[in-house]
């Protein structure tokens, strides 16, 4: 009996303590790609300000649906919305953080970065056109590496994902055949290969299958000790996946060319740009129904832009370039306003 009283009292106390905190939490939903870094930032932000983040990593499609249904303060998506879609639904969009996608392979005796591929060859592999590792098209790019007479086993994502979207976008940019036959979306009709669930599923299948090739976010390639390939970028240079190469792609992109900074970072110009760099976006209402909540969310994003770079590095993400951040914050002041037309959040530098 006594135990029950104590437990009940503890429960009530916990509820009383946690309820007010929850009430002020920022609510968001969407892409799973940036989920680790958003939670890491949110943890640090909560320690600094006492305001928490409730982020549901339900996928980009879910995030877009949730923000359109107005159940969350912000939505998050790996694929940018078009200017038309943004205008119709009264949303603003801005990129929050970036990452890199890398091809990973499992070929005996090949070390990370030893094999180099270009977009057209990668597209032909993923279309089932190139079936063996010693195919002349691969051999031509890799004169110094001896590749075996082994079948290539293609591994792709089975779940709809922003990673697939960015990967397919790059292949579409570099191969007209890919664009017309397969196309670009978060889920595709794959001509060959096996589908694995999530980055971890692809990483595991590549690790287990001799002769396999797949694509994962860079962090997963590192964590699972997978062999990544280098890429020939748009400038024709051989680059490896590094934070600097991802940043170079972001720095060389023309961010204002698309409404809502909806620039896809695949195949950007520049000698050191990694061709499969990907950004992830935040979606919010131009005239949010709850201006206070929107202000809290923008405050968190502002804080993350300014203080989150080191944390992003630790998780192998890349922060946005300062120039782009300044631009985005000016865009907030102009676009995200309350009923009277005043900006909901004033950025202080």
């Amino acid at each position: 009996m006594k135990h029950w009283t104590v437990l009940a009292a503890a429960g009530l106390l916990a509820a009383a303590v946690s309820l007010p905190a929850n009430a002020a939490d920022i609510s968001g939903a969407g892409a799973s790609f940036p989920y680790p870094i958003y939670t890491k930032w949110a943890d640090a932000y909560k320690k600094a300000t006492g305001v928490g983040l409730n982020y549901q990593s339900i996928g980009s499609g879910g995030g877009i649906k949730q923000i359109k249904a107005k159940t969350v303060t912000f939505g998050a998506s790996d694929a940018p919305l078009t200017g038309k879609d943004l205008d119709e639904s009264g949303l603003v969009q801005f990129p929050m953080v970036m990452g890199g996608i890398v091809p990973v392979i499992n070929v005996d005796g090949v070390k990370p970065g030893e094999v180099v591929l270009d977009g057209a060859t990668l597209a032909r592999i993923f279309m089932g056109d190139i079936k063996k590792w010693n195919d002349p098209a691969i051999a031509k790019l890799n004169a110094q590496v001896k590749l075996p007479d082994q079948a290539i086993a293609v591994v792709h994502r089975s779940d709809g994902s922003g990673t697939t979207f960015n990967f397919a976008y790059y292949l579409g940019e570099t191969s007209a055949e890919w664009k017309s036959k397969v196309g670009v979306n978060t889920a595709l009709q794959w001509p060959v290969g096996i589908g694995a669930k999530g980055n971890e599923g692809v990483a595991n299948n590549v690790a287990n299958t001799k002769g396999a090739i797949g694509y994962v976010e860079y962090a997963y390639a590192l964590q699972n000790n997978l062999t990544h390939t280098n890429m020939i970028n748009k400038a024709g240079k051989n680059v490896g996946p590094t934070a600097e190469a991802f940043q170079a792609a972001a720095a060389n992109a023309d961010w204002n060319s698309q409404p809502g900074y909806g620039v896809i970072l695949a195949n950007q110009p520049g000698d050191s740009s990694w061709p499969m760099t990907a950004a992830t976006w935040i979606l919010m209402y131009k005239k949010p129904a709850d201006a206070t909540a929107a202000a809290e969310a923008l405050k968190f994003f502002d804080w993350s832009y300014k203080n989150g770079g080191k944390m992003a590095d630790e998780l192998h993400y890349v922060g946005m370039p300062d120039k782009v951040v300044k631009d985005i914050e000016a865009y907030w002041a102009k676009e995200v306003t309350d009923a009277s037309g005043k900006p909901v959040y004033a950025v202080t530098n």
């Binding site: 339900i58 877009i64 889920a187």
Partner: peptide, 18 residues
């Protein structure tokens, strides 16, 4: 060979189906 089932397709693709 790899294949798919009805429930696996729904579980895989529903979240990202816009």
């Amino acid at each position: 060979a790899p294949g798919t089932t009805i429930s696996a397709t729904i579980a895989n693709e529903f979240t990202e189906a816009v």
